[in-house]
Amino acid sequence: MEHTTQPADRQNAVEVRGLLKHYGETKALDGVDLEVRRGTVLGVLGPNGAGKTTLVRVLSTLIRPDAGTAVVAGLDVLRQPRELRRVIGLTGQYASVDEKLSGRENLYMIGRLLDLPRRAARARAQELLERFSLTEAAGRAVGTYSGGMRRRLDLAASMIGRPAVLYLDEPTTGLDPRTRNEVWSEVRALAREGTTVLLTTQYMEEAEQLADELTVFDRGRVIAGGGIDELKAKVGGRTLQIRPADPDELHRMVGALAQAGLSGIGGATADETGGLVNVPLLSDAQLTAVIGLLGERGFAIAGIDTHLPSLDEVFLAVTGQKSSSLRRPAGDGSGPENAFEGVAA
């Protein structure tokens, strides 16, 4: 960070306590507590209507909560909104740049609105255009930009004031995979430089790629949180995957494991398409026991692997909600009309 107004002793860049925001019957935020440690990326994961966007809008002073407190970069969101607006940046689901202006003019205007002197605003615009690979298109109206360029310009616009805390509200929703990778690498670079990032996403992969820690949202509540591995471990054990050298032995292998009746090992299953035997594990001792048993029985093994549950599986486990709904690209998830319909956790 080049400069921020953050007190050096504060551990958390974002502290949220008991945040509540209801729209009629819909509880967009229903008592949310969360923290983002300074210099880290927190991924807020949840389906449409889970309250992610409402959270971001409260934290960026766009809406007021019904109750609760939020302190960002040491500033109270409710009491010091004007000071706070100097140290935050927001990139939403929709590009919030002026389509009729060129990329350069957009950045210059924002620099001026942030009270940079003319020359400094020009220099900062140029610097960010270079950084986000937009120099060639700098003079063109943003309306002619591709989706990825627009999103990059949006990120650049959020970075003009060198924010201490950056909110990214579903930054890659609607982008193609290549463009998504471009945005990801920019976000990683910002995080490396020490910007605290609060990222909302519906994509498991995105959270896994970018976030240091994860908070899972559903129906306005935090339903799980922690480090990604921690969360996975909490939700379920590992699965041991064994690939027999001869695919025809899949079922014999499953049968052998069932017969042996190793303690705590239930339900080994055959995955015929993958040519794998899956064995749910609860401990390392079980792993050794399974491999030992198969060796004793003379099975030829071509490969073994253990794998933690995917974030899809994590979500399924904590919400009882099918993960397919997470990728449904409908609505913006911000309004009460997007109330999340699903099975309660």
Binding site: L62, R85, I88, L90, S96
Partner: peptide, 10 residues
């Protein structure tokens, strides 16, 4: 989204 951008600035 332009208005939102302005509103998150001082």
């Amino acid at each position: 989204g332009v208005m939102d951008r302005f509103r998150t600035m001082p």
